[in-house]
């Protein structure tokens, strides 16, 4: 087995009544990889994410992390963090408290917690915002708090559920850059759920395209562009990207 294999997902299926949301999904994520799950809304990507983190239970299939079966492990014991689209910050706590709050439940002493939170806020560039309340921050800043909060517990995988879709274009670019930086500095494996092709292609080492609960293709951006596995990948992913490129080209030439 490859020594670098971080997460292995085998034959995951999930249905709500007669509605099959995920069918026999298989994929593997390497250590330190930036892995995107790309699909239009309703393709099952959020359900998959919730199964990975343990908020939902799959009907069938197994999940291995570092070779160990974590399929039925509680969310908090999987060593993963999560960042939601709507941040889900504790808005009655300061930015600092948001980041440090959970540490007390992991036998981290007070002093260490303070140090840790400060360090995380530094990483996401919010050192000077510690005493602010979430409501006083911009959307991008709030999302950074959510990232810092997830990082504080030192997870080796962080999951992102469409984290940038509520933000404006320039903030998105900023945070994209920052995510890459964090990935590089901390070496954290990142699993990133999005419906935005451009985002996925710009950030990812590897992309998995999900269509109606079924995996269409897994590969590096280059592989997908050079050899789309089927019509869906061609129309949904590549044609869309082409349109964007074409519209920009008008101004560039």
């Amino acid at each position: 087995m490859d020594i670098q294999l971080k997460l292995e997902v085998k034959e995951i299926s999930k249905a709500y009544g007669n509605n099959e949301v995920l069918r026999r999904v298989n994929f593997a994520v390497l250590d330190g990889e930036f892995f995107s799950i790309l699909g239009s809304s309703g393709c099952g990507k959020t359900t998959l994410l919730q199964i990975l983190i343990g908020l939902l239970v799959a009907d069938a299939g197994k999940i291995f992390k570092d070779g160990a079966d974590i399929t039925t492990l509680e969310p908090a014991r999987r060593g993963m963090g999560i960042v939601f689209q709507n941040y889900a910050l504790f808005d009655n706590m300061t930015v600092f408290k948001n980041v440090s709050y959970a540490l007390q439940f992991h036998s981290v002493d007070n002093e260490a917690a303070i140090k840790k939170a400060a360090q995380m806020l530094d990483i996401v560039g919010l050192k000077n915002f510690s005493a602010k309340m979430p409501a006083e921050l911009s959307g991008g800043q709030q999302q950074r708090v959510a990232i810092a909060r997830a990082l504080a517990l030192e997870p080796d995988i962080i999951l992102f559920d469409e984290p940038l879709s509520a933000l404006d274009a320039s903030t998105r670019l900023d945070i994209r850059r920052e995510l890459k930086n964090i990935q590089r500095t901390l070496g954290t494996t990142m699993i990133y759920v999005t419906h935005d092709q451009e985002e996925a292609f710009a950030l990812s080492d590897k992309i998995m395209i999900l269509n109606r609960g079924v995996v269409s293709q897994i590969g590096s951006p280059e592989e997908i562009i050079s050899a789309p596995a089927n019509d869906y990948v061609k129309t949904f992913v590549l044609d869309n990207l082409q349109t964007k490129i074409d519209s920009l080209r008008r101004f560039l030439t």
Binding site: Q50, I53, G54, L55, E74, P75, A76, R77, M80, G81, I82, F84, A88, Y101, A102, F105, H106, R149, A150, L153
Partner: peptide
């Protein structure tokens, strides 16, 4: 959900 992931009872 955040509470569950962060291990907050």
């Amino acid at each position: 959900a955040v509470g569950k992931v962060l291990g907050i009872p």
